[in-house]
Design a protein around this nucleic acid. Structure first.
Lengths: 191, 191
DNA sequence: ATAACAGGAATGAATATTCATTCCGCTTTT
DNA sequence: AAAAGCGGAATGAATATTCATTCCTGTTAT
């Protein structure tokens, strides 16, 4: 006996993949219905409209991601530990929710996001912002605006992940460790 | 006396801005026509259809960007000089063609790009690839796949530029120099 | 010099297509 | 048997594309 709201989850799953692969505007409701093996009308049983659907999806994964980063955060350890935790968090989250991070990133400044979605997203950024601000205070992190540092980490990671998804690169332990080191060198203060 | 094909250029200019700001699918032909102060039909005098238009635009700017990077490339200087040239090239190009790099980046893996566009784009990447391969040979660059290194540089730069466009960050000389240094530290081999 | 004219350029209303959303009959559950 | 869940055809609005017509600009004839 499948879980009660299997259909709803099927829709969300298909929507995530399609939105990540083709973007919101290029993804049609019939496409989603088809991929989810569900009637087009069924989608409207669970979501008022396409925008509600995308906002639900966005908030869901932003929240999940934030929780993944916060869980087990080594607040008392050294800064390199903390960075490791955050970076590994991105990797783990990406592995568990294949298209989620990419979807989030490519839709962060979309015109159809509602206030709640933007709110949730800024909460997410705050984790990184706090980390960097603290690090700069102790001269462990480069004296660049935190927003810029975040852009460097996220930009690098997601661009890389895009390659992995496209099959142009394999995400081995070794590669990921190397990229983490590279990103760390990008943001840390060099003496 | 205006240049003969002003209209065509007007269309391309408006299309660049709108595609960069809203994406291909969210931009309608009437929007472009309106912005370019041109009849909708006029667009079809110059371009077979919307996809031809976007491919023309893409190839145009990819080529321009490539030329900007190749021009004055200090092939004989040290690797740091070469990196500086490439990075400055990205900045200069971005300044000269406001939305071009962002448009290129956000559309590089779009479903509507034709073979020629993809071809041109891979030429562009090859400049960076060559640079990194050479650098790795001399142990100046981290032993990571060149594709990954490219992702780090492009990802960082474009994510950052997005912030600048959104008005969340000001692109001062100081910031750009700092980011260049950060990117260099991300890709160079540390002893 | 002026007046008709030719032909490419431009227009925007009309048409064809695509898409979000709705609706209604069928199926499953209670 | 009623209610809830579902599918997918039907609808109407939005959009890409076409096309009949108008507008220029330069050329030729008077």
């Amino acid at each position: 006996m499948p879980t009660p709201t299997t259909k709803r989850d099927d829709v969300l799953g298909s929507a995530l993949t399609l939105f990540a692969e083709r973007g919101f505007d290029a993804t049609t409701i019939p496409m989603i219905a088809n991929d989810a093996k569900v009637g087009a009308g069924t989608i409207y049983r669970y979501f008022d409209n396409k925008e509600m659907l995308v906002n639900t999806l966005f908030q869901h994964y932003v929240t999940l991601f934030r929780e993944a980063l916060e869980k087990g955060y080594p607040g008392e350890s050294g800064i390199r530990e903390q960075f490791h935790h955050l970076f590994q968090g991105m990797i783990r989250f990406t592995n568990e929710h294949d298209h989620a991070l990419y979807f989030i990133k490519t839709h962060t400044s979309a015109y159809f996001l509602d206030a709640e979605s933007r709110e949730q997203f800024s909460h997410l950024l705050m984790i990184f912002e706090t980390f960097f601000e603290e690090g700069k205070k102790h001269d462990d992190i480069r004296p660049l605006p935190s927003k810029a540092l975040i852009a460097i980490i996220f930009g690098s990671f997601l661009q890389l992940y895009q390659l992995v998804r496209a099959g142009e690169l394999e995400a081995t332990e070794e590669l990921l460790a190397g990229v983490e080191e590279s990103c760390w060198d990008a943001v840390r203060r060099h003496s």
